[in-house]
Design a protein around this nucleic acid. Structure first.
Lengths: 337, 337
DNA sequence: CTCAAAATTTCAACCGATTGCAATTGTTTT
DNA sequence: AAAACAATTGCAATCGGTTGAAATTTTGAG
């Protein structure tokens, strides 16, 4: 990088001290109008920009947020990043993005990276592998505000922002039942993730409400396209095949639709399918997928707003009370049901 | 943030000077083994981590890269970010992400933000609106290495990484012709973007090769789902409708397939469609979309590698020769042709 | 036991900006 | 004209770490 114009350059050229220049630039009342204009003029002329790093050092703040996320290449997460970046941008914060790639080990390294980079706060959605949360506890111990979103845990004293997974699942399954389904399968996420548990429990309670017995053999762990495709093939070949599917995400739901087509089973006539995410893809496939919108953009926005709020009132650390923000979901009905 | 352990804390506790501690921590030969181990031990005990900001200030380097991108919420770009983050991670760099949201004005602000944040280098794919490139020139004037990817320009002396758009388009249209199409429409991107021009020219030359006259009325500006859907409806209703489509991206291609279905036109029997991107969605729709894979992940990797190379040999600034790296594309044939 | 060489440690400046306090200049009052 | 006061400006420390050069201590040879 080229030599950047510093306050010292301006001071020298005008025969002033750096302190005077500094004060002149920020309209300190002590400075005479004459020198103030002179300083500002020259600063403009030379294209002076304050050195953020020097300010970071002095203020012990970087105006930067860390974002630790499993995979960027996933509609839901990219929507969240979008929401986060939007809020950060409006509040003059920058965002550093770190991917864990669903790897616990890499996630630990990511937490070290955010510490090293001295970010002011961190937004986290942890990996599927993560069981131990001590690396996040280390952030909290350093009094770096952390907000968890989507993938959250009760093990830590930290803010959370989640979609209303239980409500979404309940809506979805209720909808299937009202459409006439009686034998509804659930393609679930790992039960180590809160979203896995909540969505299963919404599924369970919706069945209960309509007096349909809960049948564990209809619940399968399948939260990716590949696993879901395989599982759907198996379960659809059984003699007593399901007449409805509630999938934990859109990719799994789409895999089910594809599997059904391959087996000559009609959607929605023979089998109805509901996904969770309301991704772009859900409107592209045929039939279009009924899905629970979990408003990733809003979720990201809320998470970032909450974090910025924490950064503002960071004084009352002693009486810290974690907040759990729940974003309502919405069922978007399309051709697959 | 809590008080962080500094080199001074260690120095005080051991009755040493900060310089000794500093040198001890980095195995300077001047330091006696005794003090070295003592310092390292205490540092480990207290959980000392060097303050990156202080180092940034001294070294005038942040080990941070800036990334300016139109929209994260787009498969191709998120794949690119993935590739960039991967390379940055392996080389111990962090990535700051800024979205322009396809807005020129916001993009200008983004370039200011990367300047303010004193990133070591910048990766850019500019917005559709951008005609004037002086904000990027300002980065170059500040001798901040800039690498453009996907959306590039010849107006600036800067490195570029692009997919082989011409080749990809040629492959696609050639494929359509070999499959029997004679009246091929092209849904194009704005001709202000190099990708728009290159893909059109590949389309043009493939027609030429097979002796099919170029017909401007078959070229339509339509690079989003909505515009393409509308345009497809219009063109498919004409008496002399096309028998093949080459779309500038997958979203447009999928819109064409949907429009055809709505009009009762069969794909691929009546009309064949090829997209560009090979996004996840292309394998989800029915029929699956034939598409040109532009390897977003690799493109991001290459762009980042090129930038890091520039950062390494930043000495020979005088004899700067911009590099243009072209990533070969590949036609992935599926059910839509 | 002395003195120089070697080993070890400290001093001080620096990166760029901020800020309390001291110092300088200019103005007014008596 | 001197004292008192206000208006400006400069000094120096600070943030945390690095590094050339100086200062100190240790070691070993004569």
């Amino acid at each position: 990088m080229k030599h950047q114009i510093t306050i010292k350059d301006i001071a020298n050229k005008l025969g002033l001290s750096t302190s005077t220049v500094s004060r002149a630039l920020k309209d300190h009342p002590d400075i005479s109008p004459k020198t103030r204009t002179a300083v500002k003029e020259l600063a403009g002329l030379l294209g002076y920009r304050p050195n953020r790093i020097a300010l970071n050092l002095r203020n012990n703040s970087t105006r930067t947020l860390g974002l630790i996320i499993p995979e960027i290449e996933h509609y839901f997460f990219s929507a969240i990043i979008n929401g986060i970046e939007e809020v950060a941008y409006k509040n003059d914060y920058s965002v550093m993005v770190f991917q864990s790639n669903e790897s616990y080990k890499r996630e630990v390294i990511n937490t070290q990276a955010v510490l090293t980079n001295r970010v002011d706060g961190v937004l986290v959605s942890f990996s599927k592998e993560t069981r131990d949360f001590s690396h996040f506890q280390r952030l909290i111990d350093n009094e770096i505000p952390v907000v968890f979103f989507d993938r959250v845990t009760e093990e830590l004293q930290a803010d959370q922002v989640v979609a209303d997974d239980y409500q979404g699942a309940f809506l979805a399954v209720n909808h299937l039942i009202e459409k006439g389904c009686r034998r509804i399968a659930h393609f679930a996420a790992p039960q180590t993730l809160t979203i896995g548990k909540s969505r299963l429990s919404g599924y369970h309670d919706a069945l209960l409400k309509h007096g349909i017995p809960y049948n564990p053999s209809l619940v399968v762990l399948a939260d990716t396209f590949e696993t879901a495709k395989k599982a759907a093939h198996e379960i659809l070949r059984k003699t007593e095949r399901p007449d409805g599917f509630f999938a934990v995400n859109d990719m799994s739901a789409i895999a089910i639709i594809k599997a059904a087509r391959e087996l000559g089973i009609r959607v929605p006539d023979d089998v109805k399918v509901v996904g969770f995410e309301n991704s772009k893809s859900s409107a592209l496939i045929e039939p279009e997928l009924t899905s629970v919108d979990q408003f990733g953009f809003e979720l990201g926005r809320e998470a970032c707003l909450l974090l910025l709020k924490r950064l503002k009132d960071d004084d009352d650390v002693s009486e810290f009370k974690p907040v759990k923000k729940v974003i309502k979901t919405k069922l978007v009905v399309r051709g697959s049901t």
